[in-house]
Computed example of a mutant assay.
Amino acid sequence: MAKDDYHAIVYYLLSYLYHCLKTGEKPNEKYLELAAYPAFVPDSYKDFIYIQLAKEGYISGALFGDVDILGKGSETVLKSLYNVQITVKGIEYLQENEKMKKVWAQIKDVGGILFAAIQAFK
C-alpha cells in the first residue's frame, strides 16, 4: 500500500490522535498537518481526509469553513486543528476495521516508515 493511500494516512492520523489521548499530550501541529509525514499530501487531499473523518464521527474539534472559488461556487476547507481529538467511534474504527488491520500488518511486515513514525509518538 502506498504511503499516500487514503487508508494509510487515516491510520497514521487516528493512531497519532489515539496516542495523544492516552498519554494526555496535546497533538503537535506538525503531525496533524502531515508536515512530518513520509509522503507529500496536497492541502486539498488533507482537507478531504479530515472532512471525511469528521463526517464519519471519527474525530471532533476540527473546524471547517466554506471558501468561495470564482466561477465554481464554494468549497469546504479545513480551517483549524487546534482542538482536534479522536472520538470513541474513531478508536473503535481503528481497532476493529479489517482494512485498518491489513494496513497495519503491511506496514509492520515491511518495517515501513509509518511504523517508525508511529513508534516515535510513544
Rank of each mutant, 00 (worst) to 15 (best):
V67G: 00
Y37V: 04
F48M: 11
L63P: 00
P27C: 15
L53M: 14
I91D: 03
N83T: 08
K46E: 10
P27F: 14
S44Y: 10
Y11I: 07
A54W: 01
A62G: 05
K26P: 04
K30N: 13
K55S: 14
E33F: 03
P38C: 08
L14I: 09
E92C: 00
F40M: 10
Y12R: 07
T76M: 13
G61V: 02
G65E: 12
F64P: 01
L17C: 08
Y31R: 03
K89Y: 01
P27K: 10
L32T: 11
N83R: 09
Y18Q: 03
Y93W: 11
E29C: 01
L34Q: 01
Y50F: 15
L32E: 04
G71T: 06
Y31M: 04
D66S: 12
N83E: 14
A35N: 10
I86V: 14
V84D: 08
A54L: 05
K72Q: 06
V10D: 00
G90V: 11
Y11R: 02
Y16T: 05
T76K: 15
C20P: 13
Y45L: 15
K30R: 15
L17P: 08
I86D: 03
K72F: 02
H19N: 08
I91M: 11
T87C: 09
L70A: 15
K26I: 14
D47Q: 00
Y45E: 13
V67T: 12
Y82S: 13
V10Q: 12
S15Y: 13
V67Y: 08
Y18F: 12
K46R: 15
P38E: 06
K79R: 15
I59P: 02
K55W: 01
V67P: 00
L78Y: 15
V41H: 07
Y16K: 01
L81Q: 03
G61Q: 07
G90M: 09
P42H: 08
Y18G: 01
D68L: 07
V10C: 11
L13K: 05
F48T: 10
L14Y: 10
Y58G: 00
E92H: 09
G61Y: 06
I49G: 02
Y11E: 03
Y45P: 02
I51V: 09
Y16V: 06
P27A: 15
E33K: 15
D43V: 13
V10F: 09
A36G: 00
E25L: 09
P38D: 08
Y12F: 15
C20Q: 12
K26W: 03
L34S: 09
L94M: 04
S80F: 09
I49F: 04
Y18L: 11
G71D: 01
P27G: 15
Y11H: 03
S80N: 04
L21P: 00
P42M: 00
H19A: 11
L81Y: 13
Y31W: 02
